[in-house]
Design a protein around this nucleic acid. Structure first.
Lengths: 219, 219
DNA sequence: CGATAATATGAGCGCCGACTCACATTTTCG
DNA sequence: CGAAAATGTGAGTCGGCGCTCATATTATCG
């Protein structure tokens, strides 16, 4: 894994030593971002924690912005990999709609289990940083496109719906609940329950939930 | 409306002139927060935009933190007012479950239509500021408590569910979709559609959605 | 009208941030 | 080896930040 793409690089690390330096810097950045937030993530602090001089940091990252962008891109790449993997395994055997929904939601939840604090900081606290956050949005868009295509393909099995709107609602809702859970970690909401509830949410929205017959008033 | 609560005040503005000053400062703060983000919201910039000297700012707000906290509290108060209003009007006449859901969701959407960018910045970018953000969380909690109580009261009419979990899922999902819509404003998702779709989402999750019978495969 | 309190001013202080540069050290390779 | 390239160093520059304070202006009221 090349440490950071050409657009950001000041110098490319050629020796193993240098690659280790770059890696340390990125780890330190992630750690400080997660524990102290963006405001406290000064380049001096990063260099200190990485056990590297401030000068070395600027050898490989021309600006603080580039540093954070590189981290965001790295994070996005991991997400993209998992997304591809999920698509692949989903296609392997035919499944029911319900099973498919569970499959994808499970993947999404796992995706967010990967460094959720970092994800949050990058999405929320980091002010508009061009290139890095763009990479993360692309993963989001890919994900949305997947949902859209799936809705199109199976639309005869749902209630009548506007595919655009439904995609938006579903992606946003699932993403948000998943996301938030990892931040305030409510005790009673373990991963399994989360996946089950989100599936319920999605299936219900699509008109596939088991209809409940209220007790007390006979139909 | 007293400009800011006693805990934050350095001096209380007694003359009309002073109240106007305080008001300008708060407006300027909101504007800069929304357009440039928290990082760019320096006290000097706020004072400049407010057309007021930096000294005046510190007459009424003892620190930058207090300034933002006061703004957050003001924002929270508006939300709380609307929440109370919604509860009041909801109790006026008996309604169906569906109508009630629509009523509350409509209120939530309107609530978020009030300065959504400010809401976002205060929730996300502003690092832990004690008192101000606490006020906003209280409104959130009130809102959640309301949902929880409502679920308890009508639970015999839904599918079987864990009230805690359901509250969490519903509040988070509805809040997130509402919220996000106001930030990237997708053209095809007007307020009316949004309310309808969110109601669908909630009712479906509760097992009250119209069950769809798939075409092509007879039951 | 003073006299006193309330309000407004902005140059400036101390600090810390991003970032530079002249130099030291290590690695590569003919 | 030894020279050139790659890598590493950290004191120091500079700008902007939060914030203070001595001073000027305006309102209140007897």
């Amino acid at each position: 894994m090349p440490a950071q793409p050409a657009e950001f690089a000041r110098k490319l690390p050629r020796q193993e030593r240098a690659q280790h330096t770059v890696h340390s810097i990125l780890r330190a950045t992630a750690h400080i971002l997660k524990t102290k937030g963006f405001a406290a993530c000064s380049t001096n602090a990063v260099a200190r924690r990485a056990g590297v001089s401030i000068g070395s940091l600027y050898q490989y990252f021309p600006s603080k912005e580039a540093l954070v962008a590189a981290l965001a891109e790295e994070h996005a790449k991991e997400g993209y990999t998992l997304l591809l993997e999920t698509i692949r395994t989903a296609g392997e055997q035919p499944r029911s709609i319900e099973a498919l929904v569970r499959h994808y939601i499970g993947a999404l939840v796992r995706l967010h289990a990967n460094d959720p604090e970092l994800h949050r900081v990058l999405m929320e606290q980091v002010p508009t940083i061009r290139s890095g956050v763009v990479a993360m949005q692309q993963v989001s868009n890919q994900s949305a496109a997947l949902v859209r295509a799936w809705l199109e393909a199976h639309r005869d099995q749902f209630r009548e719906l506007d595919v655009e709107v439904a995609t938006y609602v579903l992606v946003t809702a699932v993403e948000a609940v998943t996301h938030l859970r990892l931040l305030d970690r409510p005790a009673q909401l373990d991963t399994e329950t989360l996946v089950a509830e989100l599936s319920q949410l999605v299936l219900g929205y699509l008109g596939l939930g088991g209809q409940h017959r209220p007790r007390g008033r006979p139909a």
